[in-house]
Every structure is written in C-alpha cells, then in structure tokens.
Amino acid sequence: MVEGFFSRGFRGRRRNQDPALPPGQYLEDGFPVLSAGPTPHTPLEEWDFSVVGEVDEPKRWSWEEFRALPSEEITRDIHCVTKWSKFGTRWEGVSVDTLLDGVETSAEYVTAYCDGDYTTNLPLEEVTGGKAWVAFAYDGEPLEPEHGGPARLLVPHLYFWKSAKWVRGLQLTAYDIPGFWESLGYHNFGDPWREQRYWGD
C-alpha cells in the first residue's frame, strides 16, 4: 500500500555509475518544487533575518542590510531525499559564517526558522566553516518564491530539506530540536553519502 501510494516519483534503484551521485540517487535536469504548505510572499520591506537564542546579543538585518553584507557565488551539487540529485547548481548568498561573525555562543545546535512555520535543525558545526549560506539568487536571478525566495538556507552537503526555503533566522540552541521533517521520521542529520534518509539509517 505504501509502495503504490508513494512511489510515483521514486525511480528504482539504479547502478550509480557517476561517482558524484550519492547512493540511491538519480540525476535530475529540472528543479522539482517540493512545498509542505502555501508559498509565503513576504514583502521585502517586511522581511528581516535574525540570529537569536543562546547568543550574547541577538542580531537582525533588514533586507537592505542583509543585501549589503558580503556575498559569494556558490556552485554545488544538491541531493533531495526523494532521490533526485542536480549537479552544478549556481547560487549567490551570504555565508552563515558572515552572519555569525562576532556572535558569542556556547550553542552546539541551530534551528533554521522560516515563513510558513517550517523548521530544520542542524549541528552548528555543519553550517559554519564555509558549509552553508543564506542564498538570495539562483542561476543569476533573484530566487523565486517557489524555490524559497526571497532567501533560503543552502546546506548542499546534506539532503536538501535541510536547505530551508523562506528562511527568516537562525536560533542557536544548547540542545537539538528536531525540525519539521526530522520529527516525522526523517533522519536527524541527513548525510546523502551515508544515505541517512530515515530514523535509524
């Protein structure tokens, strides 16, 4: 029953000939849109980005202030837990290192929170050291709302549900708080190379 109901888009497990393709993944040319709720359309003048939680002083940027931060071009492969991977996606965004610059914290975890009440949780060390960005452009264009615009988290080394769309801030926490999918059976860490799809993988 599960098989019939949920397997429409799943492809059978293929032999992975491309070493850049994690186990169980297939190559996708398009950019599938997966949304667990209505697409928010927050006007830029109301948009802000915050760093809160276990910090000495919370930080906040308006859209203008955020866009004035140094940004980087990022080209990475992305891997969705529903088994599609897309090679060489091109983004522009602000490194999380830049956003956390000068923040004093003893936190070991971070929850990304978003418009639409989506959350995802990550160890702090998985979003620092040049591993994560808040992206505002895709393929040279402003990020479209259906792909998470005006800005989304980009953590390409983990399954793509960790790259939260419509992100509005990072909450630094001393303990780990499973997010939207992590609390619904999906793996807490989500490393595509270790095929960490579900709890217990």
């Binding site: 429409r8 799943f10 997966l34 949304s35 667990a36 709720g37 529903t82 549900w161 999906y186």
Partner: peptide, 8 residues
C-alpha cells in the same frame, strides 16, 4: 492537502 511529492 499538500502532497509533497514523495516526502509526505
């Protein structure tokens, strides 16, 4: 209902 492809 939001049918999130194969996620849920």
């Amino acid at each position: 209902v939001y049918d999130v492809r194969d996620l849920g």
